[in-house]
Design a binder for these strands. Sequence first.
RNA 1: GCGCGGUUAGCUCAGUUGGUAGAGCAACUCAUUUACACUGAGAAGGUCGGGGGUUCGAGCCCCUCACCGCGCACCA
Length: 695
Amino acid sequence: MPEKFLKPYNASAAEADIYKKWEESGYFNPDNLPGERSEPFTIIMPPPNANGSLHAGHALFVTIQDIMMRFERMRSKKALWLPGADHAGFETQVVYERQLEKSGRSRFEMQPEDLYKEIMDFTLANKSFMEGQLRQLGASCDWSREMFTLDERVVKTVYSTFQKLHDDGLLYRGSRIVNWCPKHQTSLSNLETERETRTDNFYYLKYGPFTIATARPETKFGDKYVVMHPEDPRYAQYKAGDTFELEWINGPITATVVKDEAIDMELGTGVMTITPWHDQADFDIAQRHNLPFDQVIDWRGKLLPVAGEFAGMNIKDARAKIVEKLQEKGLVEKIDEKYTHEVPVCYKCSREIEPQVRPQWFVKMQPLAARAITAIKNGEVKVLTEQHEKVLLHWLENIQDWNISRQIIWGIPIPAWSKGDEWKIGADSPGDGWVRDPDTFDTWFSSGQWPFATLQFPDGTDFKTYYPTTVMETGADILFFWVARMIMLGLYRTGEVPFKYVYLHGMVRDAKGQKMSKSKGNVISPIDVSSQYGTDALRMGLVVGNTPGTDMNLDPKKIEAYKKFANKLWNITRFVLENGLGDHTQAGGALVEEFDALAQDVTHEMELFHFHLAAEKLYHYVWDRFASEILEDSKTLLKGEDSAQKAARQSELAYILRGTLKLLHPFMPFITEEIWGSLPHNTQTLLMVESWPTK
RNA sequence: GCGCGGUUAGCUCAGUUGGUAGAGCAACUCAUUUACACUGAGAAGGUCGGGGGUUCGAGCCCCUCACCGCGCACCA
């Protein structure tokens, strides 16, 4: 028996060497796997954002995906797990801009090319750092196929999709209301905004013969149209097109009456003025009635010359001063101080979104969504769990056009050129006088094409072999951002769904269920935990009791419990080796049957993606049955005189131990491989590619 | 406004097609060198949010109420 079994299992001493052995074996690459393998099993790894270290959520996805990969690799599948790294557009730029701010710099004072280069260096450094961390977590992915979202091949694919959308009439450049973040100075998609409930003042202002109610008096300078519901009896005397003179903030103006059914008669006074440039609802009304659009607030959130004496002021500071002036002029009828409403905010900085009209590229989503809905409904792609499928369908059925332009440098440049009002699509300039669109793509536009782009669509061997992929395993929080877009764009480009199953995991929270955050100081670093308790313990802690799609709480005490479990397995091995390892091929009888039944059960759970149940059942079998009962009962037998009985029991124990190591390998790859390599068996192969104990 | 969840042991959560409730942690009583102290044995702890229904049988299916949470959406 190797000496190491005389001491407790030392995970940190063993793990790095084992990973090296796996990687050097070449078996992460399906091309090198032994035996005949016809059926592919493919997971495209959700590429981690290369802008920091791995967090607990990354550890969770590595664990779940690695469990599937190791399971299917042992079941003789052509198992491909393709890793990647994400430049993560806006996300990374925000991280980098925070760094700049800390050193007193600003992106707005930099040359775009310099900023780009700095962020690239930053991203590449993080990328290689994270690759090391993925290795520490045991990820058995094929590094030879690793992709980066800015690789030339990806960019080429993205450009061809943009071109095709254009050719198919699904792309348009429109001046529409976009979600503008005044801090980051870019437009954002609806998904990149959040809603916060605020309590503000609601101002009732005299507007000629009317009283209008508004929460935003600072936008009202240019308001020359007053709108009411056509059926509102209170205002029946006014006809659409009527004009009247009134004294307004900066002097007398002429206003015109507009009737529109969008007006809510219950709200405020049932009358409002419109600011089409800075409000979606107002924009729609203005469009319906062919009214003019005027910008009141600039891109940095300051008032424009239309505001007269207030021009140049920040809108936040301006509001109080404007109200003061309105009060002096006797135009404020009353102020309701308890007006509670929801305002859209930037999901990164929580600053209020300033709606602005800006020409951007939009994708018409309804045709793409319709095809995705069909694919989901007829089972081409199955979403786990059912409730997530419902949520996804609901979103797809109510989809809106997608703004894919971003005013940031860190991303894939949009291949479009303009000359006056004319636009042409293409990577290269159409000729003299054409100006390139300075914007970049929403990062999700490119990552939405990740599965087929990484597999070398349309002609690559990998594409033919591995597409559609088998499982997409990712966070439930990016169901719309990413999964929905991958399904739509995958179907659009390849005619097939990009994956057959979607497995969604929830968020990893701290032991008390709170969201982990640096400011709260409750962040659990998977890398630290792995170093302290071993990666296997971390993986078990992440998987047991964690049901698909629901958030989980991670308690270090739970991980510690699985560290003890690893040691239990270690000592089981010690016991079996001390008493002489039998010939597992000679094993039979009730204990063997019992184990085989467990193997069947565990396999079944894994096929259903019930990894939490598979892991828990293994835990109980190993501890409560194998260790506590079978080994205890074996003691007298093994010390007894009956050599036939003794040999039979030794065979049974060998059979169970070997089988247990195989079943546990997907969950606890390091210790099982370590033990496997210490058993005096004949084969030199790795446990990683041993055959699974059931069909 | 539209949509989706959750409520099970002191805490955090599991519970596969309905068949006498489970884990980790915490707490309790013993054991003290045993393959393993990163241990063993034992005991304790829940009318599964309330109410109603279906069923021979409900934590699980149906209805309803209460509380908590989440997502989406152009309400001034």
